[in-house]
Write a protein that binds this DNA or RNA. Structure first.
Lengths: 142, 142
DNA sequence: GGAAAGTGTTTGTACATACAAATGAAATGC
DNA sequence: GCATTTCATTTGTATGTACAAACACTTTCC
Protein backbone atom coordinates (compact mmCIF):
# COMPACT_ATOMS: atom_id res chain seq x y z
CA UNK A 1 0.00 0.00 0.00
CA UNK A 2 1.27 3.36 -0.97
CA UNK A 3 1.39 6.10 1.60
CA UNK A 4 -0.47 8.28 -0.84
CA UNK A 5 -3.42 5.92 -0.79
CA UNK A 6 -3.99 6.62 2.86
CA UNK A 7 -6.42 9.26 4.00
CA UNK A 8 -3.91 10.07 6.66
CA UNK A 9 -0.96 10.58 4.37
CA UNK A 10 -1.72 14.28 4.41
CA UNK A 11 -0.65 14.40 8.01
CA UNK A 12 2.97 15.07 8.79
CA UNK A 13 2.79 12.64 11.65
CA UNK A 14 2.35 9.66 9.40
CA UNK A 15 4.42 10.75 6.49
CA UNK A 16 7.43 11.57 8.64
CA UNK A 17 7.15 8.31 10.52
CA UNK A 18 6.54 6.22 7.44
CA UNK A 19 9.58 7.70 5.77
CA UNK A 20 11.74 7.13 8.82
CA UNK A 21 10.66 3.51 9.08
CA UNK A 22 11.33 2.81 5.43
CA UNK A 23 14.68 4.52 5.51
CA UNK A 24 15.48 2.51 8.62
CA UNK A 25 14.71 -0.70 6.78
CA UNK A 26 16.93 0.25 3.90
CA UNK A 27 19.71 1.16 6.29
CA UNK A 28 19.41 -2.06 8.26
CA UNK A 29 19.79 -3.93 4.99
CA UNK A 30 22.85 -1.91 4.04
CA UNK A 31 24.64 -2.72 7.27
CA UNK A 32 23.84 -6.40 7.37
CA UNK A 33 27.27 -7.28 5.92
CA UNK A 34 28.95 -6.04 9.10
CA UNK A 35 26.24 -7.37 11.40
CA UNK A 36 25.52 -4.00 12.97
CA UNK A 37 22.43 -1.85 13.18
CA UNK A 38 22.73 1.53 11.47
CA UNK A 39 23.02 3.41 14.75
CA UNK A 40 25.71 1.11 16.05
CA UNK A 41 27.54 1.40 12.77
CA UNK A 42 27.50 5.19 12.79
CA UNK A 43 28.67 5.35 16.38
CA UNK A 44 31.49 2.98 15.49
CA UNK A 45 32.41 5.05 12.46
CA UNK A 46 32.63 8.17 14.61
CA UNK A 47 34.79 6.38 17.15
CA UNK A 48 37.14 5.04 14.50
CA UNK A 49 37.46 8.36 12.74
CA UNK A 50 37.94 10.26 15.96
CA UNK A 51 39.45 7.96 18.57
CA UNK A 52 38.80 9.11 22.12
CA UNK A 53 35.60 10.89 21.15
CA UNK A 54 33.25 11.53 24.05
CA UNK A 55 29.70 10.18 24.31
CA UNK A 56 28.25 13.68 24.54
CA UNK A 57 29.87 14.57 21.27
CA UNK A 58 28.51 11.47 19.59
CA UNK A 59 25.13 12.30 21.03
CA UNK A 60 25.16 15.73 19.42
CA UNK A 61 26.33 14.56 16.04
CA UNK A 62 23.94 11.70 15.79
CA UNK A 63 21.00 13.53 17.34
CA UNK A 64 20.39 10.80 19.86
CA UNK A 65 20.11 11.25 23.62
CA UNK A 66 23.13 10.56 25.84
CA UNK A 67 21.47 7.54 27.39
CA UNK A 68 20.92 6.03 23.99
CA UNK A 69 24.58 6.56 23.17
CA UNK A 70 25.58 4.80 26.39
CA UNK A 71 23.51 1.80 25.34
CA UNK A 72 24.95 1.74 21.86
CA UNK A 73 28.49 1.91 23.21
CA UNK A 74 27.77 -0.89 25.67
CA UNK A 75 26.79 -3.15 22.80
CA UNK A 76 29.88 -2.23 20.81
CA UNK A 77 31.99 -2.95 23.88
CA UNK A 78 30.42 -6.39 24.22
CA UNK A 79 31.34 -7.02 20.61
CA UNK A 80 34.92 -5.99 21.37
CA UNK A 81 34.75 -3.15 18.90
CA UNK A 82 35.36 -0.26 21.30
CA UNK A 83 36.79 0.35 24.76
CA UNK A 84 35.94 3.04 27.27
CA UNK A 85 38.20 4.84 29.68
CA UNK A 86 36.96 7.26 32.31
CA UNK A 87 39.05 9.98 33.86
CA UNK A 88 37.12 12.33 36.04
CA UNK A 89 33.69 13.02 34.70
CA UNK A 90 34.63 12.54 31.11
CA UNK A 91 34.70 9.31 29.21
CA UNK A 92 36.69 8.55 26.10
CA UNK A 93 35.78 5.90 23.62
CA UNK A 94 38.42 4.19 21.51
CA UNK A 95 38.20 1.71 18.68
CA UNK A 96 39.84 -1.69 19.07
CA UNK A 97 42.07 -3.07 16.35
CA UNK A 98 39.21 -5.33 15.36
CA UNK A 99 37.17 -2.21 14.73
CA UNK A 100 39.94 -0.56 12.73
CA UNK A 101 40.15 -3.59 10.51
CA UNK A 102 36.44 -3.29 9.93
CA UNK A 103 36.67 0.34 8.87
CA UNK A 104 36.84 -0.11 5.09
CA UNK A 105 33.88 -2.43 5.24
CA UNK A 106 31.91 0.09 7.28
CA UNK A 107 32.64 2.83 4.80
CA UNK A 108 31.55 0.54 2.03
CA UNK A 109 28.22 -0.05 3.76
CA UNK A 110 27.71 3.65 4.34
CA UNK A 111 28.41 4.37 0.69
CA UNK A 112 26.17 1.60 -0.45
CA UNK A 113 23.34 3.00 1.62
CA UNK A 114 23.83 6.46 0.20
CA UNK A 115 24.03 5.17 -3.33
CA UNK A 116 20.90 3.12 -2.91
CA UNK A 117 18.68 5.99 -2.00
CA UNK A 118 20.37 8.35 -4.41
CA UNK A 119 19.63 5.92 -7.19
CA UNK A 120 16.01 5.76 -6.11
CA UNK A 121 15.37 9.48 -5.78
CA UNK A 122 17.93 10.89 -8.15
CA UNK A 123 20.98 12.89 -7.18
CA UNK A 124 19.57 16.42 -7.06
CA UNK A 125 16.34 15.32 -5.49
CA UNK A 126 18.17 13.35 -2.79
CA UNK A 127 20.36 16.23 -1.77
CA UNK A 128 17.61 18.78 -1.74
CA UNK A 129 15.25 16.54 0.17
CA UNK A 130 17.81 15.68 2.81
CA UNK A 131 18.46 19.38 3.08
CA UNK A 132 14.78 20.24 3.42
CA UNK A 133 14.17 17.50 5.94
CA UNK A 134 17.08 18.65 8.08
CA UNK A 135 15.74 22.16 7.85
CA UNK A 136 12.33 21.08 9.03
CA UNK A 137 13.82 19.19 11.94
CA UNK A 138 15.75 22.29 12.89
CA UNK A 139 12.67 24.46 12.78
CA UNK A 140 10.93 22.10 15.15
CA UNK A 141 13.50 23.15 17.70
CA UNK A 142 15.49 21.24 20.25
CA UNK B 1 22.13 21.54 18.55
CA UNK B 2 20.83 22.02 15.08
CA UNK B 3 20.70 19.09 12.79
CA UNK B 4 22.57 21.15 10.27
CA UNK B 5 25.54 21.40 12.59
CA UNK B 6 26.08 17.69 12.43
CA UNK B 7 28.51 16.14 10.00
CA UNK B 8 25.98 13.40 9.62
CA UNK B 9 23.06 15.62 8.74
CA UNK B 10 23.79 15.02 5.10
CA UNK B 11 22.70 11.46 5.53
CA UNK B 12 19.08 10.61 5.01
CA UNK B 13 19.23 8.15 7.87
CA UNK B 14 19.70 10.83 10.47
CA UNK B 15 17.64 13.55 8.95
CA UNK B 16 14.62 11.32 8.45
CA UNK B 17 14.88 9.95 11.96
CA UNK B 18 15.51 13.31 13.56
CA UNK B 19 12.47 14.75 11.83
CA UNK B 20 10.29 11.83 12.85
CA UNK B 21 11.36 12.13 16.46
CA UNK B 22 10.70 15.85 16.60
CA UNK B 23 7.35 15.51 14.91
CA UNK B 24 6.52 12.74 17.37
CA UNK B 25 7.28 15.06 20.27
CA UNK B 26 5.07 17.77 18.87
CA UNK B 27 2.29 15.26 18.30
CA UNK B 28 2.55 13.81 21.80
CA UNK B 29 2.17 17.32 23.14
CA UNK B 30 -0.87 17.96 20.98
CA UNK B 31 -2.67 14.88 22.25
CA UNK B 32 -1.89 15.33 25.91
CA UNK B 33 -5.34 16.91 26.52
CA UNK B 34 -7.02 13.58 25.77
CA UNK B 35 -4.33 11.51 27.45
CA UNK B 36 -3.58 9.43 24.37
CA UNK B 37 -0.48 8.91 22.32
CA UNK B 38 -0.74 10.09 18.71
CA UNK B 39 -1.03 6.55 17.36
CA UNK B 40 -3.73 5.61 19.81
CA UNK B 41 -5.56 8.81 19.00
CA UNK B 42 -5.48 8.20 15.26
CA UNK B 43 -6.66 4.62 15.65
CA UNK B 44 -9.49 5.86 17.82
CA UNK B 45 -10.39 8.53 15.29
CA UNK B 46 -10.59 5.93 12.56
CA UNK B 47 -12.76 3.69 14.69
CA UNK B 48 -15.13 6.51 15.57
CA UNK B 49 -15.42 7.75 12.02
CA UNK B 50 -15.85 4.28 10.62
CA UNK B 51 -17.41 2.04 13.28
CA UNK B 52 -16.74 -1.64 12.69
CA UNK B 53 -13.53 -0.96 10.82
CA UNK B 54 -11.16 -3.90 10.64
CA UNK B 55 -7.64 -3.96 12.07
CA UNK B 56 -6.14 -4.73 8.68
CA UNK B 57 -7.75 -1.65 7.27
CA UNK B 58 -6.43 0.50 10.10
CA UNK B 59 -3.03 -1.04 9.54
CA UNK B 60 -3.04 0.02 5.90
CA UNK B 61 -4.23 3.54 6.51
CA UNK B 62 -1.86 4.24 9.33
CA UNK B 63 1.09 2.43 7.78
CA UNK B 64 1.68 0.37 10.88
CA UNK B 65 1.99 -3.41 11.03
CA UNK B 66 -1.03 -5.52 12.02
CA UNK B 67 0.62 -6.56 15.26
CA UNK B 68 1.12 -2.96 16.23
CA UNK B 69 -2.54 -2.26 15.54
CA UNK B 70 -3.54 -5.17 17.74
CA UNK B 71 -1.52 -3.67 20.57
CA UNK B 72 -2.98 -0.23 20.09
CA UNK B 73 -6.51 -1.60 20.08
CA UNK B 74 -5.82 -3.60 23.24
CA UNK B 75 -4.85 -0.42 25.04
CA UNK B 76 -7.94 1.39 23.79
CA UNK B 77 -10.05 -1.54 24.94
CA UNK B 78 -8.52 -1.34 28.41
CA UNK B 79 -9.46 2.31 28.47
CA UNK B 80 -13.03 1.39 27.53
CA UNK B 81 -12.83 3.42 24.36
CA UNK B 82 -13.40 0.60 21.86
CA UNK B 83 -14.82 -2.92 21.76
CA UNK B 84 -13.94 -5.80 19.49
CA UNK B 85 -16.18 -8.48 18.04
CA UNK B 86 -14.92 -11.44 16.05
CA UNK B 87 -16.99 -13.36 13.57
CA UNK B 88 -15.06 -15.89 11.58
CA UNK B 89 -11.63 -14.68 10.72
CA UNK B 90 -12.53 -11.05 10.68
CA UNK B 91 -12.64 -8.68 13.60
CA UNK B 92 -14.62 -5.48 13.86
CA UNK B 93 -13.76 -2.64 16.12
CA UNK B 94 -16.42 -0.29 17.46
CA UNK B 95 -16.22 2.88 19.48
CA UNK B 96 -17.88 3.00 22.89
CA UNK B 97 -20.14 5.89 23.82
CA UNK B 98 -17.31 7.22 25.92
CA UNK B 99 -15.23 7.38 22.76
CA UNK B 100 -17.97 9.10 20.81
CA UNK B 101 -18.22 11.76 23.47
CA UNK B 102 -14.50 12.29 23.10
CA UNK B 103 -14.70 12.80 19.35
CA UNK B 104 -14.87 16.60 19.23
CA UNK B 105 -11.93 16.81 21.57
CA UNK B 106 -9.93 14.42 19.42
CA UNK B 107 -10.64 16.46 16.32
CA UNK B 108 -9.57 19.55 18.19
CA UNK B 109 -6.24 17.94 19.06
CA UNK B 110 -5.70 16.80 15.48
CA UNK B 111 -6.39 20.29 14.21
CA UNK B 112 -4.18 21.85 16.80
CA UNK B 113 -1.34 19.59 15.76
CA UNK B 114 -1.80 20.46 12.10
CA UNK B 115 -2.01 24.14 12.84
CA UNK B 116 1.09 24.05 14.96
CA UNK B 117 3.35 22.70 12.29
CA UNK B 118 1.68 24.72 9.57
CA UNK B 119 2.40 27.85 11.55
CA UNK B 120 6.02 26.79 11.91
CA UNK B 121 6.68 25.90 8.29
CA UNK B 122 4.13 28.03 6.51
CA UNK B 123 1.09 26.76 4.68
CA UNK B 124 2.53 26.10 1.21
CA UNK B 125 5.74 24.72 2.56
CA UNK B 126 3.90 22.36 4.90
CA UNK B 127 1.73 20.92 2.20
CA UNK B 128 4.49 20.48 -0.31
CA UNK B 129 6.83 18.94 2.23
CA UNK B 130 4.25 16.46 3.47
CA UNK B 131 3.63 15.64 -0.17
CA UNK B 132 7.30 15.16 -0.94
CA UNK B 133 7.89 13.09 2.15
CA UNK B 134 4.97 10.80 1.34
CA UNK B 135 6.32 10.50 -2.15
CA UNK B 136 9.73 9.49 -0.91
CA UNK B 137 8.23 6.90 1.41
CA UNK B 138 6.29 5.49 -1.53
CA UNK B 139 9.38 5.26 -3.68
CA UNK B 140 11.08 3.27 -0.98
CA UNK B 141 8.67 0.49 -1.75
CA UNK B 142 6.44 -1.78 0.29
C1' DG C 1 37.77 26.07 51.53
C1' DG C 2 33.27 24.44 51.59
C1' DA C 3 28.45 24.73 49.75
C1' DA C 4 25.88 25.12 45.69
C1' DA C 5 25.18 24.85 40.98
C1' DG C 6 26.55 22.79 36.75
C1' DT C 7 28.14 19.04 33.51
C1' DG C 8 28.88 14.42 31.42
C1' DT C 9 27.58 9.85 31.89
C1' DT C 10 25.04 5.93 33.38
C1' DT C 11 21.04 3.32 35.24
C1' DG C 12 16.15 2.15 35.86
C1' DT C 13 12.19 2.01 33.49
C1' DA C 14 8.77 2.56 29.91
C1' DC C 15 6.97 2.79 25.31
C1' DA C 16 6.35 2.21 20.32
C1' DT C 17 7.15 -0.68 16.88
C1' DA C 18 8.58 -4.72 14.23
C1' DC C 19 9.37 -9.60 12.88
C1' DA C 20 8.38 -14.32 13.17
C1' DA C 21 5.49 -17.81 14.52
C1' DA C 22 0.96 -19.39 16.07
C1' DT C 23 -3.97 -19.41 15.56
C1' DG C 24 -8.33 -19.82 13.56
C1' DA C 25 -11.14 -19.40 9.65
C1' DA C 26 -12.06 -19.32 4.59
C1' DA C 27 -11.16 -20.43 -0.09
C1' DT C 28 -9.22 -23.46 -3.53
C1' DG C 29 -7.97 -27.60 -5.95
C1' DC C 30 -8.24 -32.01 -7.23
C1' DG D 1 -14.98 -33.72 0.53
C1' DC D 2 -10.75 -33.63 2.37
C1' DA D 3 -6.00 -31.46 1.98
C1' DT D 4 -3.71 -27.45 0.99
C1' DT D 5 -3.08 -22.84 0.63
C1' DT D 6 -4.33 -18.25 1.79
C1' DC D 7 -5.81 -14.61 4.85
C1' DA D 8 -6.71 -11.69 9.17
C1' DT D 9 -5.43 -11.44 13.52
C1' DT D 10 -2.94 -12.29 17.68
C1' DT D 11 1.00 -13.69 20.64
C1' DG D 12 5.88 -14.10 21.93
C1' DT D 13 9.86 -11.72 21.79
C1' DA D 14 13.32 -8.28 20.54
C1' DT D 15 15.01 -3.67 19.44
C1' DG D 16 15.56 1.19 19.45
C1' DT D 17 14.83 5.15 21.80
C1' DA D 18 13.55 8.41 25.42
C1' DC D 19 12.81 10.47 30.06
C1' DA D 20 13.85 10.93 34.75
C1' DA D 21 16.74 10.09 38.38
C1' DA D 22 21.18 8.85 40.14
C1' DC D 23 26.04 9.40 40.12
C1' DA D 24 30.47 11.32 39.96
C1' DC D 25 33.18 14.82 39.12
C1' DT D 26 34.08 20.23 38.31
C1' DT D 27 33.36 24.83 38.60
C1' DT D 28 31.79 28.86 40.81
C1' DC D 29 31.18 31.91 44.36
C1' DC D 30 31.06 33.77 48.86
Amino acid sequence: MKTSESRYCKCLYFSANALARKVEKLAVESWKPVDLSPSHAYVLLMVIEEPGVQPGNISNQLQLTPSTITRLIEKLEEKKLVTRTSEGKITNVYPTSKAKQLHPELVKCANHFGETYTSIFGKEESCSMVQSISNMADKLGV
